[in-house]
């Protein structure tokens, strides 16, 4: 089995790795780059626990090959907090108890950040449909949705002040 050498960017840092062509991006992140924040809940793109962004596009890393990462820019949960502080979404998720077991949380945070980048003022329905591919079995989604809507409100207020 010939291995493939891949150069890519993860959370702003240049990295390279060698992988089997069958390895998914999720396999590579977890097993070759030790970034275990993205989780494999299903391996079929149905649960969203492996969510990352690739060139700012939200995807399931279990449904992309590691080899496809060549030249791309990948963002994972490990890059969400800055050196100074947690992302406002991360803070709000803790405050609202928008997580119980926490296995879906990295994927939901990445997905939510992608939503708010695209739509800073989503309705409850828009949040629910955007996150329909992120399964959570603990919370019934209630506190997740509230945390997202409240973060969005705070961010809009901050943006308003900044203007």
């Amino acid at each position: 089995m010939s291995m493939i050498h891949v150069n890519t960017t993860v959370n702003g840092d240049e990295v390279d790795f060698v992988c089997d062509p069958r390895e998914t991006l999720l396999d590579v992140l977890r097993d070759r780059l030790s970034l275990t924040g993205a989780k494999e809940g299903c391996g079929t793109g149905d649960c969203g626990a492996c969510s990352v962004t690739v060139d700012d596009r939200l995807v399931c890393s279990c449904l992309m090959l590691g080899a496809e990462a060549e030249g791309k820019s990948i963002a994972t949960i490990e890059g969400m907090a800055t050196t100074e502080a947690l992302d406002p979404l991360q803070v709000k998720f803790i405050e609202y108890a928008a997580l119980q077991c926490g296995i879906c949380t990295p994927g939901i945070l990445i997905a939510t950040r992608a939503l708010l980048a695209k739509n800073p003022d989503p309705t409850e329905e828009e949040v629910r449909y955007w996150l329909a591919g992120n399964l959570c079995r603990c919370t019934g989604y209630d506190k997740i949705i509230r945390a997202v809507l409240d973060t969005a409100k705070d961010l809009r207020a901050d943006a308003g002040e900044a203007r």
Partner: peptide, 9 residues
């Protein structure tokens, strides 16, 4: 077809 994530691909 599929979720937001699937739509990305």
């Amino acid at each position: 077809v599929g979720s937001t994530q699937i739509q990305g691909r």
